[in-house]
């Protein structure tokens, strides 16, 4: 008899329970990463690098070797790991504050070096862990605790499109932007994550997957409203799809 298991915890996740807020995108993304690592059969030769931000806990969630980096320093830590373990898959995980603000120089240079690492980059248009300040990715007009009257380009500048910024660099081999707002989008995102990791395994260069991800808590929305906000506000501005293959 064939036993149908619709939902099974990937081996690449530990038993530690996720502590993300209800409706947060981080949980889906972490699960997808774990599924891909399982399916590629690379769990025992994968090392993950956890960021500082809401995703700091991936260091407990992923069931492969993990290293906790300083805020914004995922890319240099991943670089150090990859240079010592060239036959391993090095997976960085970062928020938009960590990657696009304090760690922007680091990601640009890791990308320019063509560092053989993969970065999962979670763009939720705010600083999550520190309670909703403006991020480099905050949309124009968006209210945050540090842009109470909305992001004003004259005062606060314009949001950063990281995939497009990095795609022009010769060292980058794979850049894609996905989201978690529907089952279909989740499946597409999973394919992007798999391609990014394969890019690393094929020794082709730096790879990054950006994920437009809801942060209901700091957007002060219900989970469904937050998903609609990603669809209606973030997707039109950032766009979805593979930016570089």
């Amino acid at each position: 008899m064939k036993v149908l298991r619709a939902y099974r915890k990937p081996e690449s996740l530990t038993d530690v329970k996720f502590r993300y807020c209800p409706g947060c995108g981080h949980g889906i993304i972490a699960r997808l990463v774990a599924e891909v690592v399982d399916e590629l059969g690379i769990r025992e030769r994968t090392v993950g690098v956890a960021p500082v931000g809401c995703a700091v806990f991936v260091e407990e969630y992923f069931n492969f070797d993990m290293v906790g980096a300083a805020h914004g320093r995922v890319c240099p830590v991943a670089t150090g790991l990859k240079r010592v373990l060239p036959d391993h898959v090095i997976l960085g995980y970062q928020g938009d504050g960590g990657l696009a603000a304090i760690g922007l120089a680091e990601v640009v240079h890791a990308a320019a070096r063509g560092e053989r690492v993969t970065v999962i980059y979670v763009n939720n248009a705010v600083y999550g862990m520190t309670r909703g300040q403006m991020a480099p990715t905050t949309l124009l007009g968006q209210r945050t605790t540090t842009t109470p009257s909305g992001r004003n380009p004259r005062r606060d500048g314009f949001p950063l499109k990281v995939c497009e910024l990095l795609a022009g660099l010769e060292g980058t081999a794979y850049m894609a932007r996905g989201t978690v707002t529907s089952p279909r989008n989740v499946r597409t995102l999973k394919r992007y994550i798999e391609r990014a990791i394969r890019t690393q395994m094929e020794d082709r260069g730096f790879s990054l997957v950006e994920v437009l991800s809801p942060c209901p808590s700091n957007w002060h929305m219900k989970p469904l409203e937050a998903i609609a906000w990603v669809e209606e506000r973030m997707v039109p501005f950032y766009g979805l799809g593979e930016v570089k293959t």
């Binding site: 240099p76 150090g80 990859k82 010592v84 120089a105």
Partner: peptide, 17 residues
């Protein structure tokens, strides 16, 4: 490295391995 910030964090990664 691109900076000393990056250098010390590369050390962190290499040493962790």
């Amino acid at each position: 490295s691109e900076s000393e910030l990056a250098a010390i964090n590369m050390i962190y990664g290499a040493s962790a391995a």
